[in-house]
Design a protein around this nucleic acid. Structure first.
Lengths: 263, 263
DNA sequence: TTTCATTAATCATCATACTATTGGCACTGC
DNA sequence: GCAGTGCCAATAGTATGATGATTAATGAAA
């Protein structure tokens, strides 16, 4: 039971990385939630205008009002919609949406990703992870260090198999966030997960080789063990630069491929 | 209608700063949501153990099962609980909670705040706001600059009236986040709001004088106008250091006051 | 034109019935 | 004694009809 959190994180990661496929036991509620959530985030439903009234809308989706109401309440909790009597339910302006919510992130960065999207993810990661690393160098617990070590081992063992590499990579970064000892920072795990999900999807058909990446990750742990905040931050900046560059290259390659194909 | 977003932000800010008081038209749903959310976050209900079944529990709160179910679904959407047939509903481990959600933040940092709590808020702000400032120096739109200017004017006009100062202060920082042109960063507005709410509550009975603070804020805008990312970041670091120092001092003073009183 | 009561549309809430899922238990067969 | 199997009951999930509360829009009256 020592590494229960580690195993939980891994299984969670695996499930997330498995893709959008229907998770076992996906309830009706979740199906509709994802459906409507996605249609809002993907701009099918634009902010400002009313949604159909609950009666018709639930019928349109083939579910009861109960289910639809619960979905609307959850969406309201994430800032996407607002329901008022007489006026009906409407989509709120984008600035109210909680993009850091795991579901919203998935809807936003789900199907296909542009270079612009990737940029915004990395801008935030570049602000967070170096700061988290600096705190980690001062606060990491032995258990967390064990978790990170294990993740590194699995990364090494993965060779150039992108699919095997992805999960321990994610665990590494999530462990880093937890090491900061700051729950608020820990809640940004979903962000990292989304970024890695995108990286994984893109580099899947365009493997870049992870040997260099592993060395950089090892450098991070090394600096944490040395309790050197500045060096840990610096190592993470280098790591993120590389990761973003990889994603950028993959996006270009993919775009080029499409252009070639369309000729 | 030019500054619609600005006015919206201000009214929103005012409502938030007005305190926890019953907002007009607070629905039953919200009352129960806050009640249960708070009792989870404040550790009255500890992670792992089951919640009463929906039937009894709704009766205990004097509401129908429908309302309670909607509340549970929303809490599940924020990562606080998980519901499964047969097993019932249970509180999830803290690491799953989305602390960056506006409601969760309010529950977490609501009633009274320790120095530890304030620290975690400022750790994250210190990672985010300088980064946002650097981006703002490259991307701020004329309209956003106008908003920030207006906020500064109101701050100047407030003198040492803490209550009048708070709202434009909040608007200033939220505008800064929006200037980054990154929606993910914009979603951290709730974080800033919570931090300022705490500052406001503490410094209310221990006014520190805001003249110096205004000068620092002006410096930030000056650097944004000069399109100087590094200088903007640096100015924000100074600003945050001062703000955190103020909070720390206020907490100490308050603690000391209590000690004296208890004699 | 302004004011203000009326109205109708919509969400909010409740109560109840039925379905689906699943952990645990008893029973079976070896 | 043990493993496997199938049934049972507790619980959340879903559906539906009725009623209350809120408020934008309407239109009559001042």
């Amino acid at each position: 039971m020592k590494n229960a959190t580690f195993e939980a994180a891994l299984s969670q990661a695996a499930a997330a990385l498995a893709g959008t496929g229907t998770r076992k036991g996906e309830r009706l509620h979740d199906r509709i939630l994802n459906k409507i959530g996605q249609s809002i985030v993907s701009r099918e439903l634009t902010p400002g205008d009313q949604l159909p009234n609950a009666e018709e809308w639930s019928a349109a989706h083939g579910v009861s009002r109960t289910v639809l109401r619960e979905v609307i309440k959850v969406l309201a909790g994430k800032g996407l919609v607002e329901a008022r009597p007489r006026t009906g339910t409407c989509v709120r302006p984008r600035s109210f949406w909680n993009f850091l919510d795991a579901d919203v992130l998935l809807w936003r960065y789900g199907p296909d990703t542009t270079a612009e999207d990737a940029r915004s993810l990395f801008e935030l990661r570049r602000a967070i992870e170096p700061a988290a690393g600096a705190l980690a160098a001062q606060r990491a617990t032995p258990e967390q260090i064990g978790d990170m070590r294990k993740a590194l081992e699995q990364m090494r063992a993965s060779g150039d198999d992108g699919a095997r590499f992805a999960v321990p990579d994610l665990v590494f970064h999530q462990t880093l966030l937890r090491m900061s000892g700051n729950e608020l920072i820990g809640s940004l795990a979903a962000l990292t997960e989304t970024a890695l999900l995108i990286s994984f999807r893109l580099t899947d058909d365009n493997p870049a080789g992870q040997a260099h990446s592993v060395a950089l990750h090892e450098q991070v742990l090394h600096n944490i063990l040395a309790a050197d905040p500045a060096a840990t931050s610096a190592a993470l900046v280098v790591l993120l630069d590389l990761a973003e560059e990889d994603v950028r290259r993959s996006l270009e390659a993919r775009l080029l491929g499409q252009t070639v194909l369309s000729h």
